[in-house]
Design a protein around this nucleic acid. Structure first.
Lengths: 221, 221
DNA sequence: CGCTCTATTAACAATTTTGTTAATTCAAAG
DNA sequence: CTTTGAATTAACAAAATTGTTAATAGAGCG
């Protein structure tokens, strides 16, 4: 019997260790169909093992799912930071500009991450209530720091005065929704087919431009 | 036996007609859990009927689902138009401004519409391939008209020259993602609890401001 | 070789979920 | 009152889905 701690024993693993294959197949299945739509038999089949093997390695569908969603939640956290972190010596506006680009590129590499995470949290909220308070504290501290920086930049006349949470939401909305909606709009915008890269490059510039215009001090006509 | 045409016979409906109750319960269940997570037994229970009744009225889970998703797809279509339609006599900028507000208000009344529709299309694409071509044609015609109007406004120096599809995506992203993400950010932004109205009013103004700044002609400093 | 322990399989089991059916109720029409 | 047909129910059935178990294979070690 495998250990219950979630970590497979690493000694004497001689015959095929199918854990990576199962995890990879599980990621594909869960990401595309969600927890409810995913089938452990499909995952096992895609991984090239019997479904008893899947239960041998992970006991239950839920435990296998936790291994996947855990990584995805971490990635989600990273993506938020990506949009706002950076060298604090650099001008605020410049940091935000590069932050938006980095966040966009991250989304491009994980295009169904936000949809997946949001969905799972909303359809099974009870699983995520434990994390809430710690996340709240981290975000609260981060926004306070950033708000002070933005206030200072506004004081110097570099930017507009605004609520940092609105700005962060604007950035994440423009970037994340691009990828959330892409599979839907790609066929109906039509000429996008096979031009994913070109379209995304264009939208990346568009999102940066939109936020920069929002943030830069408006000329008093 | 009920007719197969999807329309219940309307004569001699004397004993309780439970169709509306089932539809209402189905809408709640499908919207919150998606097709895969929804259970016909839960729907029947919530509607106060036996699950045999549900099958008597709708035969299959899929047919019941189609009744729900059909209305939702229509709503989704409406919401797109909402952002761009308006009296063509009015100045382009002004029409867009009121359009954004109307679109936002529509999203506020249907907060889980975009998430639901996007999810269902992505997790069961085969169900929606039939509509694709007609939708593509409608959108294509609409964007061509709007692009010409925007070009004209840019020619007159009222707006920046830009791709209308980018603009539409910006508007929809800012508005829709506000509601897609709201249930997640509400507890972690913390002080939002019980202040939904205040927050939404603020974000509504923010989205309009963001787009107007994107669209208005930048001063040549 | 024979022991041990992990990996693997096939078969089984329990539960859930969707769907069916035959019998019954009940209001309205004749 | 009887007939009629829709509405309703309980019981059944089939399939899917998750999970278990007992038996076995097979590598490494003494």
């Amino acid at each position: 019997m495998p250990s219950d701690t979630g970590e497979r024993p690493s000694v004497r693993r001689v015959t095929g260790n199918k854990e990576p294959e199962i995890l990879a197949a599980a990621e594909r299945e869960f990401m595309s169909k969600g927890f409810d739509g995913a089938r452990t038999t499909s995952i096992a089949e895609a991984a090239g093992v019997t479904h008893a093997m899947l239960h041998y390695y992970f006991r239950t569908k839920e435990q296998l799912f936790y291994r996947i969603i855990d990584r995805k939640l971490r990635l989600m956290g990273e993506s938020f930071l990506m949009a706002v972190e950076g060298n604090p010596q650099q001008p605020f506006l410049h940091r935000i500009e590069t932050g938006i680009g980095r966040h966009f590129d991250f989304m491009a590499e994980n295009p169904d991450l936000p949809r997946f995470v949001i969905n799972e949290i909303l359809s099974h909220p009870e699983r995520y209530t434990v994390m809430q308070e710690s996340v709240r504290r981290i975000v609260s501290a981060l926004t306070q720091t950033l708000q002070r920086e933005l206030d200072a930049a506004a004081e110097r006349g570099e930017t507009e005065r605004m609520d940092i949470r609105m700005l962060m939401l604007d950035i994440i909305s423009l970037n994340a929704f691009t990828f959330i909606s892409y599979p839907i709009i790609e066929p109906i915008f039509g000429d996008l087919t096979g031009e994913r890269e070109r379209f995304l490059k264009m939208k990346r510039a568009e999102n940066i431009e939109t936020i920069m215009r929002r943030l830069r001090r408006a000329q008093t006509t």
